[in-house]
């Protein structure tokens, strides 16, 4: 099925924004100005964007500790995200959450998550909401190969099948859970795990936006049409460490270089767009420039933004005491 020009432009912009956002964080983190720790999504952009291109604002996603990409793909405000990462009052979570807890429920973004395997149970609940409220929505859990071994994830696959939920489980398999390879840590295969819980399994190359988009469309259509949950296994490569400052001593010296050279989703998107005459490259260049400006202003604004105050400390622990 043809992807609309509008979707393509929007998706390219989202991928470029994620890339620029993360590259800039990589640089800024090194200056020591960013508090806490951040996990970058560079190299994995097509996964978040390819999936979310098939979702509406009403649909729900849950993300991981590596959540910036999912947030941007689901439409969370980039300036607010940057300010959040800088710990400022203007942040999307008012400086209370930071990189690992960016959320915007008004956009159907149920939060990045500091707990590996935290998202899949929540997505069962979000899917239940869609089902009970009959709003035709689907709920998508993004989780890594590391989280695929968590009991919460396996329990959620079971529950989603038992309850026949409109849920999609997207395994973002970048080959490492922190520093430990998935070839060591994951017994069997994701495919067999899906089969074990009686749900359809699909897989795709996560560096190819078009492949992710089409697989995700099938998976999401399946769930939305009331046929129950699906697993989508996305093969990815992570360009940076588990967190910023990780020396990546556990990876072969050429592994990341090769990924950047041969598996860059933005480059492959531009190639395909040019070859198939889907978009003019000049339009994509314009997007690149606009995104660069956007990120620059986001960082500048974040650095200038006020810190939270003492009154914010006790605010929003409860709706009402």
């Amino acid at each position: 099925m043809q992807i609309s020009r509008e979707t393509l432009l929007r998706s390219y912009r989202a991928m470029r924004t994620i890339r620029a956002f993360e590259e800039r964080l990589h640089r800024e983190f090194a200056t020591g100005e960013i508090p806490g720790f951040v996990h970058l999504y560079c190299g994995e952009e097509a996964s978040a964007v390819g999936v979310c291109a098939n979702l509406t604002e009403q649909d729900t996603i849950a993300s991981t500790h590596r959540g910036h990409g999912h947030c941007i793909a689901k439409g969370v405000d980039v300036g607010g995200m940057m300010a959040e990462i800088y710990g400022r009052k203007t942040g999307v979570c008012r400086g209370k959450g930071g990189s690992m807890h960016i959320a915007d429920l008004s956009k159907g973004m149920l939060g990045a998550n500091g707990i590996v395997g935290g998202g899949p149970p929540l997505i069962c609940g979000a899917a239940l909401s869609h089902k009970v409220l009959k709003d035709n929505g689907v709920a998508v859990a993004f989780y890594g190969d590391g989280a695929s071994n968590e009991g919460t994830t396996l329990e959620s696959l079971n529950l989603a099948s038992v309850w026949h939920l409109p849920a999609v489980f997207v395994v973002e398999d970048n080959g490492y859970g922190e520093a430990t390879g998935s070839s060591y840590a994951c017994a069997g295969t994701q495919k067999d795990r899906a089969a074990g819980f009686g749900m359809p399994y699909m897989e795709c190359d996560g560096s190819d936006f078009f492949a992710v988009h089409d697989a995700a469309r099938d998976a999401i259509d399946h769930a939305r049409s009331g046929k129950g949950p699906v697993m989508l296994h996305v093969h990815l490569e992570r360009w940076y460490g588990h967190f910023e400052g990780d020396s990546m001593s556990y990876r072969a010296p050429n592994e990341v270089a090769d990924a950047k050279k041969n598996h860059d989703c933005l480059e492959s998107f531009r190639e395909r767009a040019g070859q198939d005459k889907l978009l003019e490259l000049s339009a994509l260049d314009e997007i690149d420039a606009a995104v660069a400006d956007e990120i620059e202003s986001a960082v500048e604004a974040a650095k200038q933004a006020p810190w939270p105050e003492e009154a914010d400390l006790m605010a929003d622990v409860y709706v009402k005491i």
């Binding site: 729900t60 849950a62 429920l105 149920l110 935290g118 899949p120 149970p121 929540l122 997505i123 069962c124 609940g125 979000a126 239940l128 909401s129 869609h130 089902k131 009970v132 409220l133 709920a139 009991g151 919460t152 329990e155 959620s156 079971n158 529950l159 038992v162 309850w163």
Partner: peptide, 27 residues
Amino acid sequence: NRVLDTPISEASYIGAAAGAAATGLRP
């Protein structure tokens, strides 16, 4: 649809209750 037996699987359904609560239900 409103009275749901669960598997013996506390992490999944308590987590689901949390997710459902954040997305429009009162579980």
